[in-house]
Amino acid sequence: MTSRDKILAAVKANQPDLRPLPEVVIPVSHADLIQKYTEVASGIGAKVYEVESVSQIKSILADHFDMSKRKVTTLADFADFAETDILQLDPHALEDVELAILKAELGVAENSALWVAEQHLGQRVVPFICQHLAILVEREKILPTMHQAYEYIGERDYGYAAFIAGPSKTADIEQSLVLGAHGPRSLSVFIV
């Protein structure tokens, strides 16, 4: 008997009688989503900008980051601003990226998380290996809670996707919060 069969047999013998999945509706408020989003994101160390145009984003980025360093993006609108040809690279070749500019499919007001899926990343490692990360999200795509987020995501297929909320951080040393653990040191969110 393989371990697989042994484990499955033991599970079957020992599991309790079937209990149905709970069916609940969690109350939700759609009020002031942008304000809530901004509050929460700022609270966990992200910078949030409400913007009208791509050129506005570019000028904010140019003000805040070292433009002489390497920038990458998967967004056609930023082709004049950052490298777009990253799909075929060995991921290790991205180690010196200073700024990555990506797009999220949705944002979540309750926790400021942004849903980024593989097809918008170029490479999975991009939002982690860069020193600074900028993510664009459409105003209408800010949803109240994780329940609405997963409803939106539905059954769509992806190889990899992530919720990203704020810059990478740690509080492992005496509960002192430090931004910039292994991933980006900063996150700028542009609500378009």
């Binding site: 966990i44 979540v108 994780m146």
Partner: peptide
Amino acid sequence: LSFFLRLLARSATGQPITTYSSHFKK
């Protein structure tokens, strides 16, 4: 996942969610 991701970090450290909730499929 919506239920567990809402509860996990809030219970653990009081954060609204961990910085990364990475979904590995392929």
